[in-house]
Design a protein around this nucleic acid. Structure first.
Length: 834
DNA sequence: AGTCAGCGCGCG
DNA sequence: AAAGCGCGCGCTGACT
């Protein structure tokens, strides 16, 4: 690093500072900034930079167009200690005055904050991943946060977005005009203009559209007070482009009182536009369908962006900045109704305008990668269409049973609490909070519980959490695994009570009360699926982003992919009266895909001869014939298969075997089992090696359909990070392919139901399972379609040219509810009589 | 009164 | 010191 700026050091530095423990360990105490005193730009890192670090930082800045010679470099923490990589909240606080004094003296116009410590000391905010890349105005200067270069060197995958941030920082400083001109906007606020819009829409070749919505609390489109505030579009008509904004339920809107009628007026033309482009259009389509307009997006930018690069953020603003060089634009969408209408409309229209330009960009990117284009066309877009209606329809819940079971759960928890209270002494002994008041009784993972177990009852501490920032040991763990160990080695009634209680606590808070709150007037609950929610292409499920906004009465979303398997919960989910509930599972689909990809002979043989691989593994581990493998043993073997196939080591195997299956293995036993496992399935290790080689060579891997997983961390200098990327390279193609098979099945089955006029609907997918609700009278026709389609998946060959040489098996369960559905034999599926 | 990260645990 | 993968969410406790 260059030396400290002398004038600055004289003003600011206190070389004898002893405000925190860092000073005692430091080589140099209180290192102040280096660089010109009159700099406009100040770069704040975490600690004083080493010379190598400084050199690479300067190179990064130069590469993005910022001249390092004009920059004042300084840091959040002032003590330099090359040995210790330390940063503590207390140290940051202690150092804060020095940095603030530096800012006062240098008076920069811009501060580049590198990493969370720098962010927090310059702005008071925490959460660098949230705040990175956006300018924070501090009055006298503006702070632009991004991630720290240290993190980038550890995770090379972050480099592109880091460099993009630096370039955005330069653009902000230069106040550069956006790369694309802002459009002229047609505001539809009179009857003649509305008629004109209707006419233009009827001839539009494409339309990118977006709605602004409102409800209190922020929630779903079916909430009683849900309103569409405005609808905007960018469309191509007669070879030119028209950008328009239609005010609807805004207080200043001329259409506020008849906004629904206005929507109906343009509905036929809106629905008929051939190319319908949107950003996360499932959301817009859901809202428009709620109010009677059935748009069907044909191109979703968000999904295309996800396919092209699963690791970047897919928001419109981020994508527009990254791909179009457009600076962020924003209004407070929580305050739509009090924001002047002009602003709302401009914002709304601009969204559609950039959505269109992104579409053009992404479309050409996809055109260059035909396999991705096929996944987009034959999986993502059709799935998005289907899921739009799945989310709107929701899943039927047995309301009475829900209320009963909720009551039971609350009572059970209360009863356990009573029993636990017998072990709680007089409140004078309770631990106190920072203000000296006794802490409340709390049997969740709290300070109170830790005190009760480890201080009052003097049970031994089995495990601790992460070491604290100040170097003190972490809190004693009260996790399930710790309880299991305590129960074995130091039995105590409190342990059993707590283990039982934690189950009921989770049922009450995470599931039952959420379900009750979310039940709509038709006894159904809703989820939001994300097709862009996972790096492998699986769906994720939960609440929509709007529902995530914290508010006084948050609407909680249901994650349909983590419903406890306990029939106490699963039997609440069912089919409405007159309908049959069907669960169709792909049997062991991931392991079948492993066999297909690894070409392991033993696995291929087992599957091709219709055998059960978990059973085979269990028999082999236990050294008994397959006929004497119990259900429980088979379950344990599942953990063995999944663990070892994806690169689990012996120590972790010992841990999971104990935690999940109560089986105790010694490390030696585990090592020998692992060794023998790879002798039994001799094709697996060579396949692992192949995946490692591929990812090292290309920095990415592909699924059989061509989904790409970028793994830039394979270049990390850190061997743990590298190992992670290697195991992901092994797992990703498998998980990807399996989940695409599920989506293809959903799409094919949906098409056949429609063709054959079957009254059957999807309720949810759970990774390798499809859930349906089918009219009783159509069940006999529907079941064979479901099973046959899943097991044959014609589109794999037809659309993707992939031919599976292992059998795929679908297991069907039928009943009134999820928890009570009974498995059908093959005969029962093909000859169903209810 | 709201925000956040870390933990622990629900699912595949 | 650390080697299954992929998720979402509720709670706690510390902070503004």
């Amino acid at each position: 690093m260059g030396g400290m700026n002398e004038k600055l050091a004289i003003e600011v530095r206190d070389a004898k500072c002893m405000d925190c423990r860092l000073s005692t360990e430091a080589d140099t105490v209180c290192v102040t900034g280096s660089g010109p005193l009159e700099a406009d730009i100040m770069v704040v890192g975490k600690m004083p930079n080493s010379s190598a670090y400084q050199a690479s930082l300067e190179a990064d800045l130069a590469e993005s167009g910022i001249d390092p010679a004009t920059v004042m470099f300084t840091s959040a923490l002032k003590c330099r200690n090359l040995e210790v990589e330390a940063g503590t909240k207390t140290s940051i606080k202690a150092c804060q005055p020095y940095l603030h004094r530096e800012i006062e003296i240098v008076k920069p116009k811009w501060i580049l904050a590198l990493g969370n410590e720098a962010l927090s000391i310059t702005t008071g905010h925490s959460g660098i991943m949230k705040y990175r890349g956006r300018l924070i105005d501090k009055g006298t200067h503006a702070v632009f946060p991004t991630i720290s270069p240290a993190s980038v060197s550890r995770n090379p995958g972050q480099r592109p977005s880091y460099m993009a941030d630096l370039k955005l920082f330069l653009a902000e400083m230069q106040g550069k005009a956006d790369a694309i001109d802002k459009p002229k906007m047609l505001v539809i606020d009179t009857m003649p203009k509305l008629k004109k819009l209707k006419d233009l829409l009827s001839r539009a070749e494409y339309l990118s559209y977006d709605v602004e919505t409102f409800s209190i609390p922020p929630g779903p489109e079916w909430a009683p007070n849900a309103k569409i505030v405005s609808l905007s579009g960018t469309m191509g008509v007669d070879g030119r482009q028209v950008v328009w904004a239609l005010p609807l339920f805004h207080p200043e809107s001329v259409w506020q009182k008849k906004w629904k009628a206005v929507l109906q007026f343009i509905k036929p033309e809106l629905e008929k536009v051939p190319r319908q482009i949107a950003q996360n259009g499932k959301y817009d389509d859901r809202w428009l369908r709620q109010f009677g307009v059935r748009t069907e997006q044909t191109f979703d930018d968000m999904l295309a962006a996800h396919l092209v690069d699963e690791n970047v953020s897919k928001g419109l603003k981020q994508q527009a900045a990254m791909r179009l060089g457009v600076r962020p634009w924003a209004i407070d969408t929580k305050e739509l109704l009090t924001t002047p209408i002009k602003k709302v409309l401009t914002y709304n229209a601009l969204d559609t305008y950039y959505t269109y330009h992104l579409y053009a960009e992404l479309k050409s990117l996809l055109a260059q990668q035909p396999r991705l284009a096929r996944i987009f066309k034959f999986i993502l877009m059709p799935a998005s269409q289907i899921l739009t209606d799945v989310e709107r329809r929701g899943v039927w819940i047995d309301r009475e049973r829900l209320q009963t079971n909720h009551r039971i759960a609350l009572q059970t928890r209360a009863h356990l609490d009573e029993q636990l209270m017998e072990w709680v002494p007089d409140s004078s002994l309770w631990p106190t909070d920072s203000k000296g008041r006794p802490r409340e009784v709390n049997f969740n993972a709290s300070i109170f519980l830790r005190w009760l177990l480890f201080e009052h009852l003097k049970l031994p501490v089995v495990n601790r959490g992460k070491e604290k920032d100040d170097g003190s040991p972490g809190d004693p763990s009260v996790a399930e695994e710790v309880m299991q160990i305590l129960r074995l080695e130091h039995p105590h009634p409190v342990i059993d009570l707590l283990m039982e209680r934690s189950k009921w606590q989770k049922y009450c808070s995470a599931f039952l009360s959420a379900y009750e709150e979310l039940l709509d007037e038709n006894d159904r609950i809703h989820t939001t699926f994300k097709l862009y929610g996972t790096v492998t292409g699986r769906l994720s499920s939960g609440k929509s982003d709007a529902e995530k906004i914290t508010s006084r009465a948050p609407i909680r979303g249901v994650n349909l992919q983590q419903v406890p398997r306990d029939p106490f919960i699963r039997s609440l989910f069912g089919s409405a009266p007159g309908y049959t509930f069907v669960e169709a599972d792909f049997s062991q689909v991931e392991l079948r895909v492993v066999a297909f990809l690894s070409r392991d002979r033993t696995m291929l043989h087992l599957y091709n001869t219709g055998q059960d691989i978990h059973r085979a593994t269990a028999a082999w581990v236990l050294g008994v014939p397959e006929s004497s493998v119990s259900k429980d043993d088979r379950k344990k073997a599942k953990a063995v298969n999944f663990g070892f196939v994806y690169g689990m080591g012996a120590p972790k195997f010992v841990k999971t075997a104990f935690e999940k299956y109560d089986v105790v293995f010694s490390l030696e036993e585990a090592q020998s089992i692992r060794r023998q496992y790879f002798e039994l399935y001799a094709g697996l290790l060579p396949w692992h090696a192949r995946q490692r080689r591929l990812v090292s060579l290309h920095r990415r891997v592909q699924s059989p359909l061509g989904r790409i997983r970028h793994l830039p961390d394979i270049d990390s200098a850190d061997k743990y990070v590298r190992g992670e990327a290697e195991r992901q390279a092994i797992n990703s193609p498998v998980q990807s392919f399996a989940s695409d098979m599920t989506m293809l099945a959903m799409i094919e089955i949906d098409r056949q139901f429609k063709e054959k006029n079957i009254d059957g609907n999807f309720i949810s997918t759970v990774h390798d399972a499809l859930l349906f609700e089918i009219a009783d009278r159509d069940a006999a026709r529907a079941l064979p379609i479901i099973k046959y389609t899943m097991e044959n998946l014609g589109s794999l060959k037809k659309k993707f040219g992939v031919e599976l040489d292992i059998p795929i098996v679908a297991d069907l369960k039928v009943g009134r509810t999820w928890g009570e559905a009974k498995e059908l034999t093959e005969e029962e599926v093909y000859d169903y009589s209810g």
